[in-house]
Nucleic acid binder design. Structure first.
Length: 828
DNA sequence: AGCACGCCGACT
DNA sequence: GTCGGCGTGCTC
């Protein structure tokens, strides 16, 4: 009787199970049981080693600890506990869960994006040569022979290496044969990839610490003069600097490692390996050596008041208003309070100027985190953030996932920037929106900053969901730049020298250069991306399905829609006024650079776009050269806009304004206004106020007037009205659904079935497919539809579950089984 | 993402 | 009749 009840007790209550997130695409979290020896070691947020499938092992994160045995499956045990304390906080896991739900991906996919890869261990199958077995080459086929040959030489191979040897992904059958023939063995190896960085320090053997003994040694030195030289340089270094680094010594003495090894072999010098930080350890001091202007001071106070009232506050500050200075003051306050802050930037690799400013003023309190960092550096920062040592993290979107212990302040600079949204691999999350959610979770304050806020943020601010603080005055009372249009319908392009600039533009450039000022030429296209415009009435041919401008393709001599792929014959006459004066616009940054070099041969011209910026530092170098006025004319794409403040730019030239005003994007005006306003802001800083020259034909475009007045509110108001006219319910959500399939017809059919299914359930909210898109990407045809609806949590949840059902519905058709759906949620 | 299983065509 | 190519589905 006792035995029975003991068994029952054990089976019912003493088994502990853990739900573990593994870095895989899994719809449901899987459960493992915890053997008794690990009971004390587990906690939510601790990594455990688990087996998944036949042999593969992963480091997963414990999400939940419970006693519920999963029904109908045999539960495997966890193999190991990898951490003695959680590597992240439960709030982080809540953020992961929210992201996976809101952006419709799995938590495993969030984990892949969130953890530095050194924390995401997985096993790799390693094939080892069996030395006890004679290879009988007779019994092997060609592939088996190749592998066994390689094994005999290398004795150990990874699966990926075998794939390379055989030039095929199908290597398992071969390995299986080799195992059967007892030529090799396999095992799973967990790869711990992080290695602490060490530096080698050198000490003198302690017996020579006695001066006399040392003197005797040096004086009685007979052979090996190089070793003596090295020893003497060592003694000198030690006396002047204290601890001596091996690398420093060898460099200073210009000696080879062999000479050094000789001294070590004689036991004169001793080697010590010391662990060091990869991250620079700057002194933790402030250097607030500036004073805020009255306007900035007021803004700062308003922000602090707003923080009492709102979870998030928008700082709408014109370019050059010195938002960064306000940020620094706020960060200083939070650092002094002893809490952590996060400073998000769209593409941090491109914004070394802000990094420099923060480092200058806040010193070692600031750490930087972005994708160009290597994984070891990221892991070290991870731990420093968790321990609370680092107070401010300046980072790109992935910095949001760092394990902050007491985060109270998040700055999202340039909040309108599209690169906050991760596009390609899931999770397709917007770091701005996720950060606002996360701030709510941990009770942190959010400051959104922009000169050209996104419409949805501005809407939230004007409807008092967020606080709103304006900084509408440039620092030092500078005026905003004058925007001058140069009407290309009146000003013929300079036919002799330049196909790109009108003589008037060239004169303006020359005048600016003569004043010793630099110039930025902004063209939003690399290479060649032409479109067509009527020289008389500035009509631009657009796709009837998609309402985006058509691109001329020389190869087919037709007009192509880059959205839906449909083609149109080349127009001979204008579809609006009937004139035959249609112009092909045809230049990108390269062309402009070349052209400027001929027009201004004495000036230094440089180009900044993704083609000309290759390495990690070439961008920095270019900016430095420009700052030091080694470059007079800088031609660039959007890249020149991002986070750059130059003091000596007299003018900005936009040679092809029409291409911006008629963007290939359905949110045409929003992007156009933002771009032109942002790029205009680069003109005129410390010096007299700047000039902007826009060459264009469509001079009556309604945005121009608003841009000239820098009137964001006017732009915003008309944009809202327009959206209502086009049935975009203002401030709703869009869900973008892509179907892809190797077969264009199947992809299209899948999308049609999908859309019909959604329409049945949500006829009132869904206006789709709004943009029938067919793209051919890597042999896969993609169709897209956009679901737009009023923002409302219940509706969003309902639509998402309808989407899931619709996807299942589509995949039930045998010929559509191989359709891949991707879903993407965004504010509109 | 791996890895197994199972269906179908090519070949002893 | 078997081998192996590849598509399909599951992983606690």
């Amino acid at each position: 009787m006792h035995t029975n009840s003991a068994v029952l007790f054990n089976e019912n209550t003493s088994f502990t199970y853990v739900d573990v997130i593994v870095p895989l695409y899994l719809k449901n979290t899987l459960t493992w049981f915890v053997p008794s020896q690990f009971h004390n070691g587990i906690a939510v947020g601790v990594r455990v080693e688990v087996q998944i499938g036949k042999s593969r092992r992963y480091a997963g994160i414990i999400k939940k600890i419970h006693q519920d045995k999963p029904a109908n499956i045999e539960v495997k045990p966890i193999l190991n506990v990898l951490d003695d304390r959680p590597i992240l906080h439960e709030d982080q896991l809540k953020l992961w869960a929210w992201i996976s739900k809101y952006y419709m991906c799995t938590e495993g996919e969030v984990m892949i994006a969130a953890l530095p890869s050194h924390l995401k261990l997985s096993s790799e199958t390693v094939v080892v040569f069996n030395p006890d077995h004679e290879v009988d080459t007779q019994t092997l086929n060609e592939k088996e022979y190749l592998v066994s040959e390689a094994l005999e030489i290398r004795s150990e191979l990874k699966i990926s290496e075998i794939q390379k040897i055989l030039d095929s992904n199908h290597v398992y059958p071969v390995i299986k044969q080799l195992i059967d023939k007892r030529i090799c063995l396999v095992f799973e190896q967990m790869n711990e990839t992080y290695k602490a960085k060490t530096e080698t320090y050198i000490h003198l053997n302690s017996i020579y610490h006695n001066e006399e003994v040392l003197e005797t040694l040096v004086n009685s030195w007979s052979k090996a003069p190089k070793q003596l030289d090295l020893l003497l340089s060592f003694l000198h270094l030690q006396r002047t600097q204290g601890d001596v680094l091996k690398s420093a010594l060898l460099k200073k003495a210009n000696a080879s490692p062999a000479v050094f090894d000789g001294l070590v072999a004689k036991d004169i010098l001793k080697v010590e390996k010391r662990q060091v930080d990869r991250l620079p350890n700057l002194p933790k001091e402030f250097n607030i050596n500036f004073r805020l202007s009255v306007a900035q001071e007021t803004a700062l106070m308003q922000i602090q008041e707003s923080f009492q009232q709102f979870p998030a506050t928008l700082l709408h500050g014109v370019t050059g208003s010195g938002k960064t200075m306000v940020y620094i003051k706020l960060l200083e306050q939070f650092i002094k309070k002893g809490v952590q802050s996060l400073f998000l930037l769209p593409e941090i690799a491109l914004t070394s100027q802000i990094i420099r400013k923060l480092r200058d003023h806040l010193g070692g309190h600031v750490a930087i985190y972005h994708s160009k960092f290597n994984m070891s550096e990221r892991l070290e920062l991870w731990h420093k953030v968790k321990s609370g040592e680092v107070k401010v993290v300046l980072g790109a979107r992935s910095a949001l996932f760092l394990p902050f212990s007491k985060l109270e302040f998040i700055i999202i600079d340039e909040e309108h920037d599209a690169s906050y949204k991760q596009q390609d691999p899931a999770p397709r999350y917007n770091a701005r929106d996720a950060a606002i959610f996360y701030a709510g979770l941990v009770n942190a304050k959010v400051l959104l900053g922009s000169a050209t806020p996104s419409l949805e943020t501005y809407y939230n601010a004007t409807t008092h969901k967020y606080g709103l603080v304006k900084l509408s005055e440039r620092f030092g009372n500078l005026e905003l730049p004058d925007i001058t249009t140069i009407d290309l319908k009146l000003e013929a392009l300079d036919a002799g020298q330049s196909q790109i600039f009108a003589p008037l533009t060239i004169d303006s450039i020359r005048a600016t250069l003569d004043k010793g000022r630099q110039i930025i030429i902004f063209q939003n296209r690399r290479g060649y991306s032409p479109y067509i415009i009527c020289n008389t009435c500035s009509w631009i041919p657009k796709c009837t399905n998609c309402d985006v401008s058509l691109n001329y393709h020389k190869s087919s001599n037709k007009l192509h829609c880059h959205y839906c792929g449909s083609t149109y014959p080349l127009y001979k006459t204008c579809g609006n006024c009937g004139n035959q004066d249609l112009l092909q616009k045809n230049f990108g940054t390269e062309h402009i650079e070349e052209n400027l070099e001929t027009v201004f041969p004495e000036q230094k011209v440089a180009r900044m776009d993704t083609d000309s910026i290759k390495g990690k530092h070439s961008h920095d170098t270019l900016i430095k050269q420009f700052e030091e006025h080694k470059i007079d004319l800088l031609v660039g794409t959007q890249m020149v806009v991002k986070g750059l403040d130059f003091d000596n730019v007299g003018a900005v030239v936009i040679p092809d304004g029409d291409s911006i005003l008629h963007f290939n994007d359905f949110r045409v005006n929003e992007r156009a206004f933002q771009l032109i306003e942002q790029v205009s802001g680069r003109a005129g800083r410390k010096n007299e106020h700047g000039q902007v020259f826009i060459q264009l034909r469509d001079t009556n475009h309604p945005l121009i007037e608003k841009l000239q007045k820098h009137d964001y509110d006017a732009f915003y108001n008309t944009e809202i009205q327009e959206r209502q006219m086009f049935f975009y319910p203002p401030f709703s959500r869009i869900i973008n659904v892509q179907s892809r399939h190797n077969d264009a017809f199947a992809s299209k059919e899948a999308m049609t079935i999908f859309c019909n299914f959604i329409r049945q359930q949500y006829p009132q909210f869904v206006f789709g497919p709004a943009q029938p898109v067919i793209n051919k990407v890597r042999n896969q045809y993609i169709f897209e539809c956009m679901l737009k609806f009023q923002k409302n949590r219940q509706i969003i949840d309902g639509i998402k579950s309808a989407i899931e059902t619709a996807v299942v519905e589509v995949l039930n058709h045998p010929h559509l089984k191989r359709t891949i759906f991707t879903v993407d949620v965004d504010p509109l």
